[in-house]
Nucleic acid binder design. Structure first.
Lengths: 233, 233
DNA sequence: ATTATAAATTGTACCGGTACAATTTATCAA
DNA sequence: TTGATAAATTGTACCGGTACAATTTATAAT
């Protein structure tokens, strides 16, 4: 058995058995080296594996933390090319339907890890690709992280604003996908029929330090929903 | 700019610009070290990145090869947990509807990289999860690789048979997903209504040396289609 | 020619090290 | 207490090396 594989397995097992939660700290690199009696690069390789699998995230100067979502029964995938970049490849335009500051829904509060009485930015918009309706999107931004938003910023690039304008570092994202039927309202927005297929995606975006800042729910037009997956068995 | 990042970018750019195809050989590690004037581990790191992104695959003792599918406009994802393993987590049963040796369709021949007159195994089956219909699956196996198949093997685990029984090494898999509406025939098999949503998945399974051996088309019941994606921006 | 065996090629695992960047903690000044 | 500054902590990039496993190529034997 490979050493790095063994270490990765052991750590994953440890996380499960001790029911560690998102953000819990694991032993530092040096400790892991001693504990397993291997060199730094071997531990690093094990950690890289776990990071790719989405089991942990590492913060330079701070430590190694558990990444663990609560939902069960989901097939685990990894997006290799940033969604941001993917969308940039196409010609995406968007129309903002709503933009205001409000209290989050319990669902949004839970996923953003904020209180129900805290202010968040709410954005509802339709996105178009080559003029065709691509999706209907609702986003909640943690106002204590994204301190200011306006229509212009949203129509440019929110992520560009977050990284360049606010100087924040975007890290990992958890996404939950499922296929379902369009409601009447969704169908209206997308110009389809009620009951037609949709791809529904919930995303939770985090900074590199693990802080969630954006919870979004997106309903995709099925005609546009094409994915390519590279599976590693 | 990080060295390994630069190398990865340069190689990816090279592949695109020179329109290299699936299976084309890249310079060996030693050459890349010299060419970029870096150590072995730096090149290795760049290659790991590209392998994770699905741009290349490496074969020990043989070389570094291009992995490049022809289809455009697909969003790229990576399955972190093997699909095999995922399915093992649930209680999956299956009923074989058809199993025979036949000539491949042009589509299957193309994806399996075999001639139209070569024999392939064709398997059609329904899979159930906890007794509920999960999906309708059609598979084509390259008979020159998978030399023998029968009902029993299929009902056990094909992948177990391939790795243990035949001693083959399963490598990477390309998968193409999209959302669509069920045809009447599919709806019948899955016990749903015509026009209901479906998740349609085409997969091409390869050995570690890049040889494709299984082309399969799967229509998933939308009620069961839940995915979790870890995005890295 | 065919087949077995040996040698060369080529990627992978792992070590131990240096330098450094980001974060956290300790320290000091106002 | 607050805020700035320095020091310690901790992960990341990169080097150069050894050993080895899988594959391919060369060589010898039949």
């Amino acid at each position: 058995m490979l050493k790095y594989q063994h270490i990765a397995d052991a750590l994953e097992k440890y996380i499960e058995e001790h029911e560690l939660q998102q953000g819990d700290k694991l032993p530092v690199l040096q400790d892991l080296m001693n504990q397993f009696g291997v060199s730094k690069s071997t531990v690093t390789k094990a950690l890289e594996l776990l990071e790719t699998k989405g089991v942990i995230f590492q913060v330079r100067g701070s430590g190694i933390f558990v990444r663990r979502h609560k939902r069960k029964g989901y097939i685990s995938l990894l997006s290799t090319k940033g969604f941001k970049k993917i969308l940039e490849d196409f010609q995406i335009t968007s129309k903002v339907i709503e933009l205001d500051i409000r209290k989050p829904t319990t669902e949004a509060a839970l996923n953003l890890n904020v209180g129900l009485d805290e202010d968040v930015y709410y954005v509802k918009r339709i996105r178009y690709i080559h003029g065709q309706s691509l999706c209907l999107e609702e986003s909640y931004f943690n106002k204590s992280v994204i301190t200011y938003l306006n229509n212009e910023i949203i129509n440019e690039s929110i992520f560009h604003y977050i990284t360049e304008g606010l100087g924040l570092n975007v890290g990992f994202t958890d996404m939950f996908l499922h296929v379902d039927k369009l409601t009447e309202e969704e169908a209206d927005y997308l110009g389809l029929e009620k009951g037609d297929p949709k791809l529904y995606v919930e995303s939770i975006f985090h900074l590199t330090n693990g802080q969630p800042f954006d919870f979004s729910k997106v309903t995709y037009n099925y005609v546009q929903s094409q994915f390519f997956v590279q599976a590693v068995l």
